[in-house]
């Protein structure tokens, strides 16, 4: 699949059940590790679609410990949660955990792993997600497209509502 020149993020599908991403960061592994494991730092970048705020519960990063992520949307009070257990903790080079959503938009559990490779003063991140089935992987892949489409439809709804209101106003006058 051709890579776009706009960014250095590489996304590949090495098999039917996997998604792999590679990207470099201009900070040493120990800081990237902190950004992936400390709740107050995770909250600052792992956010979802616009309008959602992330809350991270956990911070005890050791094998067998659990973590939980909760996204909240202020506009309607909607919440979305996911959580799992740390499976491998090798600070600051490898982190692996399970992931399962409360309201499962993909079947089963995913195994996520993050490898941090020191490169000069920076870090190369290899992020790997493995799903229980191809269907689950494809749902995870396509879900973000849905987000984008939902956003577009919401905007369209707004435009239509405005147009209807304007029309009603004209007729009423």
């Amino acid at each position: 699949m051709p890579a776009t020149a706009t960014s250095d993020l590489d996304v590949t599908l090495p098999s039917d059940t996997e998604i792999r991403m590679t990207r470099s960061f201009a900070a040493p592994p120990r800081l990237v590790w902190a950004a992936f494991t400390e709740p107050d730092l995770m909250q600052q970048w792992m956010t979802g679609p616009s309008g959602w705020v992330l809350k991270v519960i956990g911070g005890d990063v050791r094998v067998g410990a659990s973590y939980r992520l909760e996204w909240h949307r202020a506009s309607d009070g909607a919440t979305m949660g996911a959580g799992g257990v740390y499976l491998e903790v090798r600070k600051p080079e490898r982190l692996s955990c399970s992931e399962r959503f409360d309201d499962p938009w993909y079947p089963g559990e995913a195994i996520n792993s993050y490898d941090l490779e020191a490169r000069g003063a920076g870090t190369i991140l290899h992020q790997h997600f493995r799903y229980e089935s191809k269907a689950a992987r494809d749902m995870a892949l396509s879900s973000h497209m849905d987000d984008g489409m939902r956003e577009s439809y919401r905007r369209l709804d707004g435009i239509l509502a405005e147009a209807i209101a304007r029309e009603a106003g004209t007729l009423g006058a």
């Binding site: 699949m1 776009t4 960014s7 993020l9 996304v11 960061f25 396509s142 497209m145």
Partner: peptide, 12 residues
């Protein structure tokens, strides 16, 4: 794939 990539790019 692009839309998935775009979401992660924004995060990163």
């Amino acid at each position: 794939l692009e839309s998935y990539r775009a979401l992660w790019e924004a995060r990163f």
